[in-house]
Design a protein around this nucleic acid. Structure first.
Lengths: 215, 215
DNA sequence: TGTCGGTTTTAGCCTGCACTAAATTATTTT
DNA sequence: AAAATAATTTAGTGCAGGCTAAAACCGACA
């Protein structure tokens, strides 16, 4: 029985995120998400299927087995704890923590994971507003609506900023749009979304307001 | 030009440590240190030679070039900073920090390295008493004598405990033999070395006193 | 100088994980 | 339902890094 490599962990994590709310994931989807060829993806899926970490029948897509999901959640927990730890205890800027966690998540032992969690007070949210799975593999995932989709007049708290684009995150951070901040939608504009935030009034482009979710 | 992989970093680090005070390292030496076959070692040495990280001529042994040494010292810095950070900020037991650092050292960015160093007050010693290279690649390495070699009556401060055997480290930690602790050699015995430490009197076996250095 | 023992290197093979190109299956359009 | 298109899988390759077995080399000693 071969060991579970870091690359396998990346696949499992990607499949987990893609399969949310759906009944199967397509080869081309993880291929795009992980930026590999479809052939490479097929190859790895078959390997994971042999290890009984994904349920797969050719040409039909696949999902994680419970064993695969367990591992995926463990890695996601690692990732998000590391993000929070870096931000909170080492002051690493928000737009950087994702990239760092992406590498560290594969080498974090359960021992150090536990100590980090304790140091952070057993948190349930990472600095982007994403939920942190607990050790038993449970995670309550609430999807708040995107700022882009909100009606003018709505008021709320920023719940989540996407972790995908560092450039966007840097923008949002500079503007003060971060999880926990109170915000009010003033008006929808052709070029974006006018909001009031901490007394200031500003316009967020469509792409920016696509990557912000409000509670 | 291929990238420098984690495995390559392990080789460079091992060569650095082996070549101290000598004029060449033998294939069999890194092979043993890294627990790989001699053939695998030869193979990697040739790869490192092509990258101009080691100077090598077949059958004659090898040493690091200055480029190779730069990388080796960077990884050693990572390793020792991580050890200290884990021990000091997360309370990871001494006998465990080496293993953890061994994996983390390859994924630590310069950014996070700098923040960890700052959080630790730009330290010069890791928790085993080994010196931490500075960012410019300088390191003052003083070799203190082994406890095993000390004459009775000698008094001193524990300067260094080996990081190689977790079992031994656990022993030493339990007995209170840790860097910084004051110690006095009382007598040499057939089965070890009798010492006084913090008022208590105890006997350290030969293997234990082999892995302790005193200032 | 020749031979022996140990070390080092070469040769050839395996696995992980990527790739391209070609073949296959699924889906959509006509 | 057949044909066109899109998605997926297979086939074959390459590189990193390990292995064993065999060959080559070095140093020592008779």
């Amino acid at each position: 029985m071969p060991a579970i490599t870091g690359v396998m962990q990346d696949y499992l994590k990607a499949i987990y995120k893609l399969q949310q709310g759906r009944d199967a994931v397509a080869t081309s989807e993880i291929a795009e998400r992980l930026d590999v060829s479809a052939a490479s993806a097929t190859n790895m899926i078959k390997r994971l299927a042999r290890l009984r970490l994904v349920a797969y029948s050719r040409y039909q897509g696949f999902v994680l087995t419970s064993a695969g999901e367990r591992i995926a959640l463990e890695i996601i927990r690692h990732h998000r704890l590391i993000e929070l730890y870096l931000a909170q205890h080492l002051g690493v800027p928000l737009e950087q923590v994702h990239g760092e966690a992406e590498r560290m998540e594969h080498v974090l032992s359960e021992e150090v994971e536990a100590r980090m969690a304790t140091a952070l007070g057993d948190p349930h949210q990472d600095p982007h507003g994403d939920p942190i799975p607990s050790t038993d593999g449970s995670m309550r995932d609430v999807r708040y609506p995107k700022l882009e989709a909100l009606a003018p007049g709505t008021e709320g708290v920023v719940a989540h900023v996407s972790d995908q684009s560092p450039a966007m995150l840097r923008q949002l951070a500079r503007l003060g749009v971060l999880p926990g901040v109170v915000l009010k939608v003033l008006a929808r504009r052709r070029n974006g979304c006018e909001v009031e935030i901490e007394g200031r009034r500003l316009i967020l482009s469509h792409s920016l307001s696509e990557s912000v979710r409000v509670q």
